[in-house]
Nucleic acid binder design. Sequence first.
DNA 1: CGTTGGGTTGAAGCTTTTCAAGAAGTGTGG
DNA 2: CCACACTTCTTGAAAAGCTTCAACCCAACG
Lengths: 247, 247
Amino acid sequence: MQEVAAPNIKECANCPIRHRAVCARCDTEELALLEDIKYYRSFSAGQTIMWSGDRMDFVASVVSGVASLTQTMEDGRTQMVGLLLPSDFVGRPGREIATYTVTATSDLVMCCFRRKPFEQMISSTPHVAHRLLEMTLDELDAAREWMLVLGRKTAREKIASLLAIIARRDAILSKHAASNSLVFDLPLTREAMSDYLGLTLETVSRQMSALKKDGVVVLEGKRRIVVPNMDRLMEEAGDDSDGGFLS
Amino acid sequence: MQEVAAPNIKECANCPIRHRAVCARCDTEELALLEDIKYYRSFSAGQTIMWSGDRMDFVASVVSGVASLTQTMEDGRTQMVGLLLPSDFVGRPGREIATYTVTATSDLVMCCFRRKPFEQMISSTPHVAHRLLEMTLDELDAAREWMLVLGRKTAREKIASLLAIIARRDAILSKHAASNSLVFDLPLTREAMSDYLGLTLETVSRQMSALKKDGVVVLEGKRRIVVPNMDRLMEEAGDDSDGGFLS
DNA sequence: CGTTGGGTTGAAGCTTTTCAAGAAGTGTGG
DNA sequence: CCACACTTCTTGAAAAGCTTCAACCCAACG
């Protein structure tokens, strides 16, 4: 459980998330300001990046890998409240103390900004503030979508919804767009899935088996998923089929 | 189901939500700009303000009353994804089509801004944009808190959580702060509560009765709630007792 | 004074959880 | 290179919690 060495990225210009992250709208000059206050950190799968209640001296963008935000009750029940993919933003300007526990779900690289100077940039450069507003509104929409999943969907629909979300993101990143079938690796353990879905890990396992038995997905090993028919998966998720799957 | 007459507010200076809403940070000059693009609308309890998928020509602040955002699946299952109280903001700058159905849960007054000019203000006046970012971040926190409720709490804890949230807001607004006991009116029907909590209305009713039987709350009629001991209610909600109840 | 909308309560049924055992894959040291 | 431990995942059986279906209450209102 120790931090692994920083990766070989330095220049914002070459950054894989340059055009989707909080810096997306920055011009050359603003980017130079960000370069001054940024540094990279890497984490290995399973590592906790920050505990709820910790002092937080930075905010950050996910560069590669997957991280999760979780909340835990005293008796140990935990709920994932955010799944952070490349370009997603972590931390809240103006807040010193972390509200959620942040965990690296896979190996992870983050681009961190020292908090104080970043907060100043929020005030002084409208491009950063505006992009952050846009991203926060997107996250709020995602959270609300997830509230429907948590509150009203069956276990089977929940699993299908999660797989659909991950498949969709993967399709966007790797541009398999043309085909109706997809292959991807689950970046989550069964336990992480259960924490996301408000289920037990046994129920997750059972429903995964059921979807496999019914031919909705094919499992190659425990982590690799093949979706032969995306429309079918969307149907199982209870969404109106294809609801803008590549938008 | 028709719109009732607009109320007798005109001046931002006298507005009850002047210091909490999206306009909170505006100076006199900015306020004058807002006055130009604003108009009031009133709705009666139960009225739908906007359907998911409708074209949306305004954004708005709740001035008084309670509204809700809901999502509905094709088969009719519905989940409330937002409870909008006075000063809360409705609508998304940059979005033409409503994502959620907005309903007046009680009689309601809204301060509406024409969307296009409001979007221009977002770009041109940092005070509005900054306040909107802050409010959106708060809403995101609230949504995540609610994800824990939906995903991991029992029916009894869900009810207690909802009552605690409403009690807390009421305490802030009406400044009963000193006392540990509280009285308030539920602004929600049993059905609205069930939509919020991801339960059936029968379960809501049963758990309300159970909390009453156990002395956690006293019901005066169907809507008026007395909470003799706020700490007790927080315990029932499964939160660490009093987690900053008046912050 | 009957109708209507909101609320309560009961009984049966179904989904998900809980508890428990075991299988499959991964890594370590002898 | 195999044995052993360890983690992750799967599956079964029983139990719990919530939903479903149904009946009924009550206050408001035309």
